[in-house]
Deep mutational scan, measured.
Amino acid sequence: MSRVPSPPPPAEMSSGPVAESWCYTQIKVVKFSYMWTINNFSFCREEMGEVIKSSTFSSGANDKLKWCLRVNPKGLDEESKDYLSLYLLLVSCPKSEVRAKFKFSILNAKGEETKAMESQRAYRFVQGKDWGFKKFIRRDFLLDEANGLLPDDKLTLFCEVSVVQDSVNISGQNTMNMVKVPECRLADELGGLWENSRFTDCCLCVAGQEFQAHKAILAARSPVFSAMFEHEMEESKKNRVEINDVEPEVFKEMMCFIYTGKAPNLDKMADDLLAAADKYALERLKVMCEDALCSNLSVENAAEILILADLHSADQLKTQAVDFINYHASDVLETSGWKSMVVSHPHLVAEAYRSLASAQCPFLGPPRKRLKQS
């Protein structure tokens, strides 16, 4: 649940008159999402009104509101027999009622949201009550392989729920002597030191190019640089560091992050930047690179990204790559990247197969709970 924001200063709310007192009302909304995959969808019983329910879910471990999704594969009634019906059901509720908006969509073979439908307002739910769409999607369109909505005969539904909580009022009075504290510009100011090479005390040599930097900042941000300058190493004695395995453009992006906490060109060089972040123990930059690479996972590059993640101990990226390969196994196994990995990294192939087997055979063990970014 997000923290209630402070109200904007009255002088910034309007260029008009300023009242002596004010009130700011925040209506709290808890948002969460749920993904439900139905394997072997074409084998569902086709009687009209037949119901399939998901397991229950909530916004978190401490949330007492429990929900589930309900599907009628062949419609709810005679009117909707040519459609799939989809509903959000409130299973248990400690209150007399709650209000919530919802959005349903289908994830296609690429994991993209399609055929989205959402409620136009927050509906009133009581325990045992459901709301949804009797005519969510035509069955003939859903079952047509050309539309790519049932890869490997799996129907994957994605649901986003927004639950309306209580409202909170914050009130106060205006004073004539309003003090406005300026925003912190530390990142910009440190970035200026790097860009202008002011007050530098060490030189970093990268592929024949020299960059002036500040030992204190490098040591504070990177345990690797800290070790170089702290001990009686040649880098500490000469205040000069030779860097041979990072390209200059990648190095500059890494230094921008060290000084400012930002990497504006990360998406263009996420793979190389991940390697640099791993070498210099820049954990936050490493996770930022993992996130960017996750966003660009595809059938063509899944094997290469899995190898990269394994090489640099990028655990979150590795998990996402394995899950992606499992979901698109029939396509990924035909790529040149996968065939190369079979020869060069057989242990990763074995890991992917083990994960695929456990996903398809849940009876082999208890269900695993899916539970950071600093």
Results as ranks from 00 to 15, higher is better:
residue 123 Y to Q: 09
residue 203 C to Y: 08
residue 154 K to M: 11
residue 139 R to W: 03
residue 76 L to H: 09
residue 193 L to D: 04
residue 26 Q to M: 01
residue 99 R to Q: 13
residue 334 E to G: 09
residue 21 S to R: 11
residue 9 P to C: 12
residue 320 Q to W: 10
residue 156 T to N: 09
residue 372 K to G: 08
residue 65 L to G: 13
residue 341 M to F: 14
residue 354 R to F: 05
residue 351 E to F: 11
residue 182 P to D: 06
residue 204 L to S: 11
residue 351 E to T: 08
residue 111 G to V: 09
residue 214 H to T: 13
residue 261 G to E: 03
residue 351 E to K: 01
residue 189 E to N: 01
residue 102 F to Y: 01
residue 114 T to L: 02
residue 93 C to M: 13
residue 55 S to T: 04
residue 193 L to A: 07
residue 214 H to N: 14
residue 142 L to K: 14
residue 126 V to C: 14
residue 351 E to M: 08
residue 38 I to C: 04
residue 62 N to F: 05
residue 98 V to P: 15
residue 175 T to E: 09
residue 140 D to H: 10
residue 132 G to W: 00
residue 301 N to Q: 13
residue 313 S to C: 03
residue 312 H to R: 04
residue 8 P to F: 07
residue 46 E to D: 04
residue 205 C to R: 11
residue 68 C to Q: 05
residue 207 A to E: 11
residue 63 D to N: 06
residue 348 L to F: 09
residue 207 A to W: 13
residue 368 R to Y: 14
residue 100 A to F: 00
residue 243 I to V: 01
residue 114 T to V: 09
residue 334 E to T: 01
residue 322 V to C: 10
residue 8 P to G: 11
residue 252 K to R: 04
residue 31 K to D: 10
residue 106 I to K: 12
residue 294 C to K: 15
residue 6 S to N: 04
residue 349 V to K: 00
residue 11 A to Y: 01
residue 152 D to F: 06
residue 334 E to S: 10
residue 177 N to V: 06
residue 73 P to E: 13
residue 210 E to T: 11
residue 286 K to M: 06
residue 195 E to N: 08
residue 98 V to C: 14
residue 314 A to C: 14
residue 59 S to A: 04
residue 129 K to I: 09
residue 362 P to N: 15
residue 16 G to R: 08
residue 53 K to W: 02
residue 98 V to M: 13
residue 219 A to T: 08
residue 374 S to C: 14
residue 306 L to E: 00
residue 353 Y to I: 02
residue 74 K to Q: 01
residue 62 N to R: 09
residue 144 D to V: 02
residue 134 K to M: 01
residue 124 R to I: 14
residue 225 F to D: 00
residue 230 E to T: 14
residue 27 I to Q: 13
residue 273 L to F: 03
residue 217 I to W: 02
residue 328 H to Q: 01
residue 183 E to L: 09
residue 365 G to S: 15
residue 126 V to I: 08
residue 173 Q to M: 02
residue 6 S to T: 11
residue 135 K to V: 12
residue 257 F to V: 05
residue 145 E to K: 06
residue 363 F to M: 15
residue 282 L to W: 00
residue 163 V to N: 01
residue 124 R to L: 06
residue 309 A to T: 10
residue 76 L to F: 12
residue 125 F to M: 00
residue 163 V to C: 10
residue 333 L to R: 05
residue 350 A to K: 02
residue 291 D to C: 09
residue 370 R to Q: 14
residue 133 F to R: 14
residue 157 L to H: 02
residue 203 C to K: 15
residue 115 K to P: 15
residue 156 T to F: 11
residue 205 C to W: 09
residue 146 A to Q: 01
